[in-house]
Design a protein around this nucleic acid. Structure first.
Lengths: 255, 255
DNA sequence: TGGTCTAGCCTGTATATACAACTTGGTGAG
DNA sequence: CTCACCAAGTTGTATATACAGGCTAGACCA
């Protein structure tokens, strides 16, 4: 915590980000114009301009000269979410996503899970075990733990139609993520759920996601090696006009 | 191509990026101060400030109040390179990197390679086959093709001490990369080179890199699944002060 | 009714100016 | 010689102002 007052342009940014995070401003909603901020916040237009311009660079809002400033579509901003939501990826390929819920329960965190989520042993967590299908073929086994007090309504949720990552990001913006990718030999249970051949390796993504400074969910995502791959594209920072192209986007391809 | 003149702040950015790319300004070199730009370019200080501030956000330069503006360490800007260079990763862990050159030849591009590199069949390419060791244990089999006219001195290079990616980025900044990560079952040759168990899967990274708008190198990087993983960290755009934390950094962990 | 035009709002950029905070090098006092 | 201090240069922020250009709704005309 710094004691120094934040600069005004940052206060404006925080204000608007707060209204977006809280749901007060939703995607496509109109954000106050520069002149409205000038009057409401008693700042100069250049200061309001800087705040809105940086929010544009960071992907929170989009601006159209002559019309105004509007909250971005969430997916445009949160690459982390884009990575998360396998349903969207499948849909983007024009395929059909279905999901089978194998487990959906409340447990006490222990061992590795408690450690990964930075909670004490025995704290309540939800455990989800789902299989995601693309056009009827199993493509991902999702083994996820969620800190219970972050998502108290979790047990009421029907995860066949809203993926856990979409559900979690609706509760609160997922702000940071850490992931590990490895090749592994799945055990028999995983192999059976994903209809994998005996000698087929799996691609495992282990991902831990933070919200408001604390880890809230820990997921192991198993994929059949013959049917799944991660692709990434790296562009240099700055050259294109939009910063949304500056960040790695990871999406999987099939076929 | 837009016919409209670029805005002045963008011209300033392009100017400075050009001086960095050309080597005229090297890491830690001092960039002209705002007031120097004001005099030299006949712009207002706010315009120079915007140019330098955005270059800071994009990782090209670092600014210190009272001292000046300095070209960033290259590694801080070019995450693509950071991903490339396995020798650096190993060294960062305090381990010893060694390298064995299995093949180092000039070939005619054909089939998949020609297609990936966007060159006609039969065009000259260099082929490299290297094994990278970490503390004496093989950790990566690098199977790389390089467009010959991009790196004409390639055959003279000793890749035991300078990795191909370091060599290539020294020739010209690698500006764009595309990669695919998959789990695979390596063939016997790969398995033998990497000292892998019979049933051990491999993590394969296939990477294609662009410079000045054309693909210049195509690499298949095989890793033993039990000894290698890719880790990534995603932070939200904007919240921290440094943009270097906003971009994915991929590095591998061992043990 | 249907089309055109314009006033008004909005963003995008640029300039001139001002003050605060930080860093460095030199100056002067002890 | 050493320490304290100050001046100059630098970045960081903020304001007031100006003009160009995109967009839209409503006025206006045929």
């Amino acid at each position: 915590m710094t004691l120094a007052a934040k600069p005004m342009y940052q206060q404006l940014k925080d204000l608007i980000i707060g209204r977006i995070s809280s749901g007060d401003l939703r995607p496509a909603d109109r954000v106050p114009s520069e002149n409205e901020l000038v009057e409401a916040m008693s700042v100069s237009r250049m200061t309001a301009n800087r705040a809105l311009r940086e929010l544009t660079d960071e992907g929170y809002v989009e601006r159209v000269a002559g019309r105004g400033t509007f909250v971005s579509d969430f997916r445009a901003r949160s690459h982390v979410l884009e990575v998360h939501n396998i349903a969207d990826e499948i849909q983007r390929r024009g395929h059909v996503h279905t999901c089978q819920v194998l487990r959906h329960s409340r447990q006490h965190a222990r061992g590795e899970i408690a450690k990964a989520l930075h909670v004490a042993q025995g704290i309540d967590v939800f455990h989800l075990l789902l299989v995601h299908f693309e056009n009827g073929t199993p493509i991902q086994l999702e083994d996820r733990h969620i800190v219970a007090d972050f998502a108290p309504e979790c047990l009421e949720q029907d995860f066949r139609h809203v993926t856990p990552s979409a559900y979690l990001s609706a509760i609160s913006p997922l702000q940071e993520a850490e992931q590990v990718v490895r090749a592994a030999q799945p055990n028999a249970a995983v192999r059976q759920r994903l209809l994998m051949a005996d000698d087929e390796p799996s691609l495992v993504v282990i991902r831990r996601t933070w919200s408001h400074g604390r880890p809230v969910t820990f997921a192991r995502l198993h994929h059949p090696g013959s049917r799944y791959e991660l692709t990434g594209h790296y562009a240099p920072p700055g050259t294109p006009k939009s910063t949304t192209e500056n960040v790695v986007e990871l999406e999987k391809l099939q076929r």
